[in-house]
Simulated assay, not measured.
Amino acid sequence: MDRVVIAYVIYLVVSVVLTVWVARTLSRNGRIFLADVLRGNEELADAVNRLLVVGFYLVNLGLVALFMTDSGDVSDNRGMLENLSIKIGWVLLLLGIMHIGNVYVLNRIRRRGRMEREQVPPVAPQDWAEV
């Protein structure tokens, strides 16, 4: 078998496994965070969580597919490993950037919700107080 084909198979296996592992980890652990952001609405948190996971898969697997090009010398084992490390490195970098972006946006939503709740007084005004 050609080294390029071997490199592609290794790249696909590693990239897909990493993408699935990260998506499951973020989904499982992010559910609690989403429930807090969405003020305890469990159904909405689950729906948003599923939508985020689908988007995560689409973007990452799309990137994996785009990197399925011959971009380097794969004539020997060293070239194959260097080519694989660059491609897998880009996938990992995108996974990290997407994770940080999601956490940032959700944290902003959460912070805005807390600020809105703090503006409402805990007890409604009763009457005018005489001084």
Rank of each mutant, 00 (worst) to 15 (best):
V22R: 14
A35V: 02
L18K: 02
V16H: 03
T19L: 09
F33V: 07
G40T: 02
L38C: 03
R39V: 08
S15I: 12
G55P: 00
V13A: 02
L38M: 11
R50C: 02
V37N: 11
N49E: 06
A7R: 00
N41V: 01
V48N: 06
L52N: 10
N49P: 01
A23R: 08
V16A: 09
V16M: 08
L38V: 01
V54Q: 07
V16Q: 04
L34Y: 06
N49F: 05
T19Q: 06
V17Y: 00
V22H: 12
G40P: 12
L44T: 03
V22Y: 11
R31T: 03
V53G: 05
V9C: 02
N41F: 04
A47Y: 07
V54P: 00
T19P: 00
R28A: 14
A35S: 14
L34W: 07
Y8L: 07
G55S: 12
V53S: 15
E43L: 09
A23L: 08
I10P: 02
V37W: 09
V9E: 09
R31P: 05
L44Y: 04
V54C: 03
N41W: 07
I10K: 05
S15H: 04
A23E: 10
T19I: 15
S27M: 13
I32G: 13
V14R: 01
E43Y: 05
R24N: 13
N29D: 12
S27I: 00
V37E: 13
E43M: 07
R28E: 14
L52F: 08
A7K: 00
L12C: 08
N29A: 14
S27Q: 15
G40S: 04
L26V: 03
A23G: 07
D46P: 01
D36M: 10
R39A: 13
G55N: 13
A23N: 11
V54D: 03
V20T: 11
E42G: 06
V16I: 15
Y11T: 12
A23S: 13
R24L: 14
G55Q: 10
V14Y: 01
L18D: 04
N41H: 14
A47N: 08
L52D: 04
V16C: 05
L18G: 03
E42F: 08
W21K: 11
